[in-house]
Simulated scan of single mutants.
Amino acid sequence: MAILEICVTGDPVLHSIARPVTVVDDELRQLVADMYETMDLAPGVGLAAPQVGVPLRLFVYSYEDDEGAPWRGVVLNPILWISPLPIGEIDEEAEAEGCLSVPGERHPLRRAEAAMLTGTDLEGDAVELKVVGWRARILQHEFDHLNGVLYVDRLELPYSRRAAKAIRKSGWGVPGISWLPGRDDLEG
């Protein structure tokens, strides 16, 4: 297995719609294994193929809730349904989100409380996830990556302004910038 470079905002692969996965072969299986290893080292709770420069509709996820229940998997060609967005003031702490492609930044973003996602796994078996809370947030975040949307693209004022300033200050927002977990001193 290998640790993969993670693309930073501004790279065209992050801002384009990914292609469907049409073939599951040894090369794709290796990509998924490398994505798990990269996500775990980063550390992250999800990693989409476009984040490692591969424009395919797949992502891996891994999250352990407060009770210690593990939740880990891969989804190819997902379809996502979400509940209506909550109404009211955003909670800057509870709704703060980060992204390995905007490393070190966290900003509050309103997400749906519940989500259902369908797709397939590497064996071609159906995957159906019905989740709430942080697990729903993770699925929405990773699904957005497959459609060329980063969480910072969804931020509202004043958070969008703060994120844009941080991106400019870091010199991001241009093609070709990446970081390698375990080598570079960055966190998402």
Rank of each mutant, 00 (worst) to 15 (best):
139 L>N: 03
159 Y>V: 08
24 V>D: 02
80 L>Q: 10
63 Y>F: 14
23 V>S: 07
8 V>H: 00
83 S>R: 05
181 P>F: 02
70 P>H: 02
118 T>Y: 09
139 L>C: 11
177 I>D: 05
105 E>T: 14
27 E>T: 15
96 A>K: 09
86 P>R: 02
15 H>T: 15
175 P>F: 11
16 S>T: 14
159 Y>H: 12
132 V>L: 13
139 L>V: 06
33 A>P: 00
39 M>K: 08
96 A>V: 04
188 G>M: 03
98 G>Q: 04
180 L>W: 08
50 P>W: 08
82 I>W: 05
55 P>Y: 04
150 L>E: 01
150 L>C: 00
86 P>S: 02
65 D>L: 06
136 A>V: 10
122 L>G: 05
11 D>N: 08
113 E>H: 08
153 D>H: 12
30 Q>T: 13
64 E>N: 01
151 Y>G: 09
33 A>R: 13
167 I>C: 08
105 E>C: 10
124 G>D: 07
134 W>Q: 07
118 T>L: 10
138 I>T: 07
6 I>Q: 00
99 C>F: 01
98 G>F: 05
36 Y>H: 11
13 V>Y: 03
41 L>G: 03
180 L>H: 12
68 G>P: 02
92 E>G: 04
87 I>V: 12
78 P>D: 06
178 S>M: 05
56 L>S: 09
27 E>H: 13
86 P>G: 00
147 N>C: 14
92 E>I: 09
38 T>S: 02
11 D>Y: 00
162 R>T: 09
112 A>I: 02
64 E>F: 04
113 E>S: 06
157 L>H: 13
167 I>R: 01
94 A>W: 03
165 K>I: 08
165 K>C: 10
60 V>S: 04
167 I>M: 14
17 I>Q: 15
172 W>A: 10
84 P>V: 11
154 R>W: 05
122 L>W: 13
154 R>F: 06
135 R>D: 04
69 A>L: 14
176 G>C: 00
85 L>F: 06
148 G>R: 03
54 V>Q: 07
143 F>H: 06
128 E>T: 15
151 Y>D: 03
51 Q>S: 07
184 D>W: 02
47 L>D: 04
19 R>Y: 15
120 T>M: 13
171 G>A: 09
168 R>A: 08
73 G>I: 07
187 E>S: 12
182 G>E: 03
158 P>A: 03
173 G>I: 08
155 L>P: 00
152 V>D: 04
82 I>H: 15
133 G>L: 07
136 A>L: 09
178 S>F: 13
10 G>I: 11
106 R>H: 12
115 A>D: 02
45 V>E: 03
59 F>E: 11
136 A>D: 01
35 M>P: 01
40 D>R: 15
180 L>C: 08
145 H>E: 06
134 W>S: 10
99 C>M: 01
85 L>A: 01
180 L>Y: 13
89 E>R: 07
4 L>R: 08
28 L>D: 06
125 D>Q: 14
37 E>H: 04
123 E>A: 15
80 L>S: 01
44 G>Y: 03
87 I>L: 13
43 P>N: 05
119 G>L: 11
149 V>Y: 07
18 A>H: 07
85 L>E: 02
174 V>C: 11
90 I>K: 03
91 D>C: 12
90 I>H: 03
51 Q>G: 04
120 T>N: 08
68 G>E: 03
62 S>V: 06
